[in-house]
Amino acid sequence: MTHTVQAREILGPGAFLGVEHAVLFESEPEKARAIARKHLHIYLNSAYKVAKFRRLGYSEEEIAGGSDRIVDDLVFWGDVDTIVEKLHGHVEAGADHVAVQVSGIEPGESAMPY
């Protein structure tokens, strides 16, 4: 949520702040993090994104290795209630809107458990 807090501070209280966050409907930590690391590969290897992650307080080792901390911060995983609770943190940090990027599903499949 650090980025959301910083964005709100920069924009001030009157500007619209929309944020996006990746989510994964998987509750098993090892499996969730493995899927999330695959999703994050492009982000963790982009010079622009790496610079942003450094500004947000992540170490070179956390970024390069896709540490549990950075993975858990960048992809919210778990059951629906856990994910919704985490997403609500963006609103508490000053976001007006939170877009959800669902990860870990094949095209045409539903992310919601049946």
Rank of each mutant, 00 (worst) to 15 (best):
M112P: 08
Q101I: 13
R55G: 14
E109L: 09
H21D: 04
L24N: 02
R37Q: 07
E92R: 13
G57N: 06
L11F: 13
D72T: 11
E20A: 12
S67I: 14
A93V: 11
V75G: 02
Q101F: 15
K31M: 07
V91Y: 06
E9N: 12
I83A: 10
G94V: 02
E28Q: 08
R69D: 10
L87P: 14
R69T: 14
E9F: 07
L11Q: 06
H3E: 10
V84K: 09
G94Q: 02
E28W: 00
K31R: 09
D96N: 15
Y48V: 15
G66F: 06
L87M: 13
N45Y: 01
D68H: 07
H41Q: 14
G104C: 03
L44G: 12
G89F: 01
D68I: 10
P29N: 01
D79A: 08
A36R: 00
Y114T: 11
H39S: 11
D68K: 14
N45C: 02
H39R: 12
R69Q: 10
R8F: 10
D79I: 11
G18W: 00
S46D: 14
V102R: 04
V71K: 00
S27Y: 00
N45M: 08
R37M: 03
I42Q: 08
I105D: 12
H90N: 13
L24D: 02
A51T: 11
R54S: 09
V98M: 01
D79N: 15
P29F: 01
H39N: 14
A22M: 11
S59G: 06
K52V: 13
G78V: 13
E62M: 05
G104D: 00
D81Y: 04
D68Y: 10
D68C: 02
V98K: 02
D68V: 08
H88R: 11
V80K: 14
Y43L: 06
A22W: 00
Q6V: 12
S27L: 02
F25K: 00
E30H: 03
G65A: 05
